[in-house]
């Protein structure tokens, strides 16, 4: 069983900045792995038996090499960094196309696990688009995933409960946040990770032209960006609990209007 886990490095909450073209600035920002992607990795490591391999893949700047190495220490067998200046500014279509190309380049995966959405963009589109590009089914909003006789059994979260699905491999599954707690790196894992290489894939390796990836390959363009509730954070500080609750309630009522 070959498992691919797609990970995204997102800015830590409260540190998001955008440039003149409304692209997230990741270079100076403190980054963390997307929470739902961490659940996807732990799901993969939980499923993994001795014969299986777990490959982690991320698309982003070169500085993600060390964080990727940490994922090797946590139990991943192989780490892939898809990085090229040409990939900058990619929307979900361009991102999914690039990831799908990388997945094809790396070989046939039986299972692709992703987080269901990233905490920066919150679109939740990429997993389904990757699956579509690869021509495989996608199950979104997974709470748990198990393997049996070459099929994947997924508990999928619905608005009114949970549905159990069985799908033959290959399949893409997007995991809900907080469903699996990502394990800590172990001492032995860290020792192993030291001798492993984070593999780099750029646009040339993937055979992608500049027109088909990054900002140029994107179908959507952000034309403006505004804060929904400017100034809300700058209100007076209230130290009394009851008065603070009343003030918060009034503020929420104002927003709902």
């Amino acid at each position: 069983m070959k498992i691919l886990v797609c990970m995204k490095a997102v800015p830590s909450t409260g540190q998001v900045q955008v440039d003149g073209q409304f692209r997230l600035q990741r270079d100076g920002a403190k980054l963390q792995w997307n929470i739902a992607d961490e659940a996807a990795l732990e799901a993969a490591l939980t499923l993994k038996s001795a014969e299986d391999t777990v490959t982690v893949l991320t698309m982003g700047p070169a500085k993600l090499e060390d964080p990727l190495r940490e994922l090797l220490a946590r139990g991943a067998d192989r780490a892939i960094l898809v990085s090229d200046p040409a990939f900058a500014g990619a929307d979900t279509v361009a991102t999914a196309g690039t990831i799908a190309k990388a997945a094809e380049f790396l070989g046939d995966f039986d299972l692709i696990l992703c987080g269901r959405r990233a905490i920066d963009g919150e679109t939740g589109q990429t997993p389904a688009m990757v699956a579509a590009a690869l021509g495989i089914p996608c199950i979104s909003n997974a709470e748990s995933v198990q393997l049996q006789n070459g099929a994947v059994f997924v508990a999928r979260r619905l608005e009114s409960g949970t549905v159990l699905l069985s799908v033959p491999c290959p399949v893409c599954v997007s995991m809900c946040e907080y469903t699996y707690t990502l394990r800590l790196p172990g001492i032995m894992g860290m020792r192993r990770a030291k001798s492993k290489t984070v593999e780099l894939l750029d646009s040339a390796a993937l055979g992608l032209s500049p027109q088909s990836c990054g900002l140029k390959g994107s179908l959507t363009k952000v034309i403006s960006m505004d804060s929904k509730f400017p100034g809300l954070r700058n209100g007076p500080k209230e130290t009394d609990l009851n008065a603070g609750t009343d003030a918060l309630l009034a503020m929420l009522q104002e927003v709902v209007k």
Binding site: L184, P185, G186, I187
Partner: peptide, 9 residues
Amino acid sequence: LMGYVDEVA
């Protein structure tokens, strides 16, 4: 002795 690592978890 060795920090917060998987062995501790």
